[in-house]
Simulated assay, not measured.
Amino acid sequence: MRRRTALALIPALCVPPARRAAAQATFPDRPLRMVIPFTAGGSNDIVGRMIAEGMGTRLGQSVIVENRGGAGGVIGSEAVARAPKDGYTFLLGGSGSFLISSLVQPRVPYDIIRDFAPIGFIGAAPAVIAVNPRVAATTLAELRGLARSGGTPVSYASPGVGTTGHLLGALMAQVFGAEMDHVPYRGTGPAMTDVIAGRVQVITNAAAPFLPHIAAGTLRALAVASPRRLAILPDVPTTAEAGFPDILSATWYGLLAPAGTPPDRIATLHAALAATLADGSVQRRLAEEGAEVEPSPQPADFGRYIAEDRARWQQVVTRTNIRAE
């Protein structure tokens, strides 16, 4: 090598490796992909697209939403677990499609702790416990009394076997010390229709679909399964206020990447998510979906939340032997 050429290379060789890497590749430098493990149109899809739009603006690249529904969320989640570990593909994970599905589905081809890297928590929509207004219960304590009366078991509707609504009903039965009949449906809509008609007595779900029916008097809200009251239902007590602090449940949302994604890319995605969640318009739109924004300070905080929530629901699944069909 000529001396002049060697001298010309010295400044480049003296640049720290991190700065050289940054100069060679800026993340992201092309569109990203958010996988939503549900078909389009539901609450998960609405929340995911809202977050994708906000993050895309802050990252300077489009975040393309890909709906991959099926198998209770397993198909979409597996697609992300097996995706390249480069930060360009991430999952809108949720309490039902990601966590509970991993506990009740017969075959899950991934481990939600080992095979995913948490990016950040988005927020949670606490479950509202509601009944048909003809049910002789205006409080959760009265519902327990009805369930323990020794007559026909109280029935509760859910969007399907192994869903959040199914597990919350099972948790209520455990806490009440009573038998309750589970009536599964194919989605929240038909379940709510039958409760309003009086064919089933109890239903639990995020608040948003219930609001018009509560206002019209065709559903009666007994409690919110959350430590705090909901701003959109300020007169409905929490389960703790009603005397049942162990009955807690929410439909939560968060972002996850494949395990092994570089930490600096996770940090970039986390920062874009945090900035999106700090936007007042995003907060208002999420509130309309019944979700309370709760950004995690660091990705690891979301990881700890997942582990703790899985341990809590694992106890319910083990005691009741719930399995998706």
Rank of each mutant, 00 (worst) to 15 (best):
G145R: 09
P190F: 09
A170D: 05
S149P: 02
S155P: 06
R107E: 11
I122M: 13
D181F: 07
I203K: 08
E179A: 13
G123K: 13
L140C: 01
G169F: 05
G123M: 12
G165F: 03
D111R: 05
V200N: 09
A178S: 12
E142S: 02
Y185T: 03
P190L: 09
I119L: 14
S95Y: 03
T152W: 02
V175C: 01
T139C: 01
A191H: 08
A206G: 15
V108A: 09
I113L: 12
I100L: 14
M172Y: 04
Y110Q: 09
L146D: 02
S97N: 08
I196Q: 07
A127Y: 15
R107W: 11
M192N: 04
F98Q: 00
A117V: 10
G189S: 10
V183P: 03
L143M: 04
A206C: 09
S149A: 15
V131C: 03
R107V: 14
V128I: 14
L146F: 06
R148N: 10
A173E: 08
A117C: 14
G93V: 08
L143I: 04
I100W: 04
V104H: 05
T139M: 01
L140N: 00
P109V: 08
T204I: 09
A207L: 15
P118T: 10
S95I: 01
L92H: 07
R107T: 12
Q105V: 01
P190R: 08
R144N: 03
P153I: 05
F116W: 11
M172N: 05
D115L: 10
I100A: 02
T188V: 13
M172I: 13
E179H: 13
L171S: 12
A206D: 13
D115I: 11
T89K: 04
Y156F: 15
T193R: 13
S158F: 00
Y110P: 07
R199V: 09
V161P: 00
I119D: 08
L103I: 00
R134A: 13
F90V: 06
V131K: 03
P184C: 08
G151T: 07
A124L: 08
A124C: 12
T188L: 15
S95T: 15
V104P: 04
G160W: 03
G165Y: 02
T204G: 12
N205A: 14
F121D: 14
L167V: 05
T164G: 14
I112M: 11
G177Y: 06
T138Y: 00
A206I: 12
F116G: 07
E179Q: 14
P106R: 11
P106F: 05
S155G: 12
V175H: 10
A207D: 14
I113T: 15
I100M: 09
L92M: 15
A124P: 06
Q174K: 13
P126Q: 11
M180Q: 07
A137G: 02
G165W: 02
V200Y: 10
A208T: 12
R114F: 09
L171K: 11
F98S: 05
L99W: 01
G145D: 15
E179P: 05
G162V: 04
A136W: 03
G187W: 14
T164I: 09
P209L: 12
L99G: 03
I100N: 01
G162I: 00
S97I: 01
V202Y: 01
T204S: 13
P159E: 06
G96N: 10
A136Y: 00
A130C: 10
H182Y: 08
G187P: 06
